[in-house]
């Protein structure tokens, strides 16, 4: 099937089997290997990308369903010489060990901070109508779709909270 994908601000013409997941299209056909395949069933979050600003599991959606959508991968968030605030904070706080889950963690956290700014409640939010803070409990709950088998969760939570504080001050 022929279709186009808009990824990190660039349009790509593709001709792929309809079975191709968005993750496989990004990695195997567009060379964007930052997004990782962990479980391939939406359980680990390593494949997390943003579609129209929202984080999703790219393994659990078909590439051909995303014509016209704005897709952002880890490659679109920052570069080695120009890190995004979360990328920099993950380095500062040791938010990884092997690094395999990191692109998914950072894409997820980038969109998650926007969800907090938009006032979305979570399962641990006490008052559904109150403004939420990026507390340890809130960040942990909201990031539960991203597993880290090296268990670097304390560093991940610290990195995310630091950026949340910086953004709140800005």
């Amino acid at each position: 099937m022929q279709f186009q994908l808009d990824v990190n601000g660039e349009r790509h013409a593709l001709d792929l089997d309809t079975r191709t997941s968005l993750l496989d299209a990004l990695r195997d056909h567009l060379g964007l290997t930052g997004s990782k395949k962990g479980c391939d069933h939406g359980q680990c979050g390593a494949c997390t990308v943003m579609v129209n600003g929202r984080r999703i599991n790219s393994c659990l959606t078909l590439a051909c369903m995303h014509e016209g959508d704005e897709i952002t991968t880890i490659e679109g968030l920052g570069r080695p010489d120009d890190l995004s605030p979360l990328q920099r904070a993950f380095v500062e706080h040791d938010g990884y060990q092997c690094g395999y889950c990191t692109p998914g963690q950072i894409c997820s956290a980038t969109a998650m901070l926007d969800e907090i700014k938009a006032g979305w409640p979570s399962n641990v939010t006490g008052d559904l109508e109150a403004q939420v803070e990026a507390s340890i409990e809130e960040v942990s709950e909201r990031m539960s779709g991203n597993l880290c088998r090296c268990s670097c969760y304390p560093g991940i939570v610290d990195a995310i909270r630091q950026v949340a504080k910086e953004e709140a001050r800005a």
Partner: peptide
């Protein structure tokens, strides 16, 4: 959230942020 909070609560208790977005 205001008038049918049990529905908000049930939704937030399910799946992950990524899955709820899809």
């Amino acid at each position: 959230r205001r008038d049918w909070p049990v529905l908000s609560r049930a939704l937030l208790a399910g799946a992950s942020g990524q899955l709820r977005n899809k």
